[in-house]
């Protein structure tokens, strides 16, 4: 019987320079080095990436969808944060 299971890692891949790393899935590995090696085999078999980040899943804190209202709804009525809120004559150019 195995004494301890390999922890879970979240994998982020940058598809090419100039773009951000994106989450693409997770995998199990004994440590960060192995997580990188496994991520290379599991998530970049067809040139999907030029850079990989691995983060142990337990270090990620996620917001709770039940709090989505208080977190994200206040932004909905702040239309003045968008350029279209401001009435300008058509004659104004370059704005």
């Amino acid at each position: 019987m195995s004494t301890k299971n390999w922890p879970l890692w979240e994998i982020f891949v940058r598809s090419k320079n100039g773009l951000e790393h994106r989450h693409c899935g997770s995998l199990h590995a004994a440590d960060s080095e192995m997580a990188l090696e496994n991520a290379r085999d599991v998530y970049t078999r067809r040139n999907e990436g030029v850079s990989i980040w691995v983060v142990e899943s337990k270090h990620i804190t996620a917001s709770n969808p039940e709090h989505n209202g208080e977190l994200f709804e206040p932004a909905q009525d702040k239309v003045y944060r968008h350029p279209t809120f401001y009435d300008l004559p058509d004659d104004v150019k370059h704005m």
Binding site: S2, T3, K4, W6, A30, D31, M34
Partner: peptide, 14 residues
């Protein structure tokens, strides 16, 4: 199994 255990033991030692 022994490989998985050894990898874990090695990671902990490191």
């Amino acid at each position: 199994e022994w490989v998985r255990d050894a990898a874990m033991a090695h990671a902990e030692k490191k």
